[in-house]
Amino acid sequence: MDQIEKTKTEEQSKVHSNGQSSKGKRLDVMKTYKLFIDGKFPRTESGRYYVLNNSEGELLANICQSSRKDFREAIVAARKAQHGWASKSAYNKGQILYRIAEMLESRRAQFIDELISQGYSSASAQAEVNLSVDRLVYYAGWSDKYQQVFSSVNPVESSHFNFSVPEPTGVVAILSPEEYGLIGIISAIAPAIVGGNTVVILASAEKPLSSITFAEVLHSSDVPAGVVNILTGYRSELLPHFANHMDVNAVVYCGNNAAEITSIQELASLNVKRPLIYTENNWMKEESQNPYRIMDLQEIKTTWHPIGQ
């Protein structure tokens, strides 16, 4: 990834400074980065953290190192929220996704600064935030259209009315792309929730800050509690739990590690989870957004009814 741009002052490039304030200079108020579970911002129950530094070795934040228990609690929240979220009208879900885009747009500067603090160049940070907003708008628009494109009325031979429609797979556990600070989680969350699923997503361990800040965006966008739950921590520790939890319907893995992919696919078989593996290296491309990503997390339901008296 890009190196920090030196054009920014140190003060601007950091999310917060933990140094002593010199005379006449205002002391920064530092943000505590926490998890996002069931619409709240708890710390990890484990009390563990890892240190996130910038490329100069200065502290950016102490990041929650989520445990299996945090994950399980997040799944409980996601399950509780799923039926209600899926029952909202397509129009309503579309407006909520659009609202997320609006909220993200209004906080562009904050996200750009935060990405820069984690090593992005100014240009790449701007491009990523812009595309993130646009990708949310893109999926918002699909909310009331993918059903029409991918459903069918089936001309059965017998005297029945028969139709097939997509329905959400349910609760989705996602390991988001490790290399991206923002577009990764947006690209993974949006197609899942626009289709009525609820998600638990693990942020990039290297670049976790904007995922938690994005939770604040979700929090102010009429997204019901539990629809999106965001954890921070280590992929290696949490991956088995994401794949073997018996109340998860699909597990999405973004990455290229062959051993991790095998592990996900093996553990998914415990309850016939749908394992979805996205191996692209570049999530900024047009190909990373399409309605087939929505359909990856849908089930087709077929209903029959006699035609008669």
Partner: peptide
């Protein structure tokens, strides 16, 4: 109001 019906066009 029916059961166990199958058809090639029906997923």
């Amino acid at each position: 109001n029916t059961y166990n019906k199958f058809d090639p066009t029906s997923p």
